[in-house]
């Protein structure tokens, strides 16, 4: 299945060896046979993609949609293995310990790289510098919603409520929490975070008026928004998502808080460049397939199919800008009170 010409393969293998050696010097546990494996990746061996969430969630669905299409291009089985725990940190930790031969990958959640580090102790935070990035995948937008009975429709309504606001988040260290903390801090609204356990309970709490507002991933709320059971106030996207064209973004409303959930395919540190390239090509083929594009559409996902380097830049700059704005407003993501 390898389509590279012989010469190019040798050059790249050389690169791979250099890279492997350089990481080995840094103390990475590089498998001895990685250069030989790099030559004709995948070489008939299956590829496993870790997912740090339960089956059925959006990350899991994305991984499965990608696996199907990539398997066709690679000519070997690509299986998804769920290793839920600690918001994906458990799977990420396990990925770091695997042989960097391209046969073990993971669909990484952006929040793990650029939001959770702001909420958990430093030694538990995942550093994306410890991984290779195969490719960016897609982005999911957060939308601030409320029940129609609350009477709120804009951020100004919340500001003029004349009482403290309660807001539901999908958990500590999530984009849902960060987006709202940033919005309320910047707009000077007195608000209390009430963390729930994921998107669905948060949605129920907003629907039932248990909390005033909540920030939920667009795909999870769209059905209720279209049915008129939820009022969208703002989205936290950089520009209006095509799936919700009539709702202003927080940026438009005057608050600088773009927060998105981003997803990317990661590999263990020290994976040879040639293998990364081959994988990238396989995922590109997946992105190009009409089934996958339909999948994105069905799940309100915005493609973010950028190169590994570009993605690393995106996520690193996200972490930096969130860290500075969180410090500026004295927001403590860890302490909800």
């Amino acid at each position: 299945m390898t389509r590279n010409s012989g010469t190019r393969r040798w050059v790249l293998t050389g690169l791979g060896i250099t890279l492997a050696l350089s990481t080995a010097a840094c103390g990475g546990n590089v498998g001895g046979g990685s250069d030989a494996a790099a030559e004709d990746f995948p070489g008939g061996d299956p590829v496993t993609i870790y997912v740090g969430q339960d089956p059925g969630g959006s990350t899991d669905l994305i991984a499965r949609a990608l696996a199907d299409a990539a398997s066709e291009d690679l000519g070997v089985p690509v299986t998804v293995e769920n290793k839920p725990g600690a918001n994906g940190a458990l799977a990420a930790q396990e990925l770091a310990g695997q042989d960097p031969d391209g046969h073990t990958l993971m669909v990484f959640n952006g929040s793990l790289g650029y939001i959770t580090p702001l909420a958990v102790p430093e030694d538990e935070a995942i550093d994306i510098a410890d991984y290779e990035i195969v490719t960016g995948v897609s982005q999911d937008d957060y939308v601030l919603v409320t029940a129609p009975s609350s009477g709120f429709a804009t951020v100004d309504d919340l500001k003029n409520a004349g009482r403290p606001i309660t807001f539901g988040t999908t958990g500590v260290g999530t984009g849902s929490q960060l987006s709202q903390e940033l919005l309320f801090a910047q707009s000077g609204i007195d608000a209390t975070a009430v963390p729930f356990d994921g998107g669905s309970p948060t949605l129920t709490a907003v629907l039932g008026g248990q909390v005033d507002v909540g920030s939920i991933q667009l795909g999870e709320a769209i059905e209720q928004i279209e049915a008129g059971e939820l009022t969208p106030i703002v989205t936290f996207a950089e520009e209006r998502p095509s799936y919700l064209p009539d709702t202003p973004t927080a940026v438009e409303a005057g608050y600088d808080v773009p927060v998105q959930q981003s997803r990317a395919v990661f590999a263990p540190s020290g994976t040879p460049q040639e293998v990364l390239d081959r994988l990238q090509a396989a995922f590109q083929a997946a992105f190009d397939s009409p089934e996958y594009q339909q999948f994105n559409e069905d799940n309100q996902l915005t493609p973010n199919e950028v190169s590994g380097d570009e993605l690393r830049e995106q996520w690193t700059s996200n972490l930096d800008s969130y860290r500075s704005v969180v410090e500026e407003y004295g927001i403590d993501l860890g302490g909800a009170e």
Binding site: A86, E124, V172
Partner: peptide, 20 residues
Amino acid sequence: GRDGFTGAERFTFSNLSLAD
């Protein structure tokens, strides 16, 4: 497990398997 409200670790002995 990890406290869902503050992110603090409780009886996890720094073991990620116990974080949830």
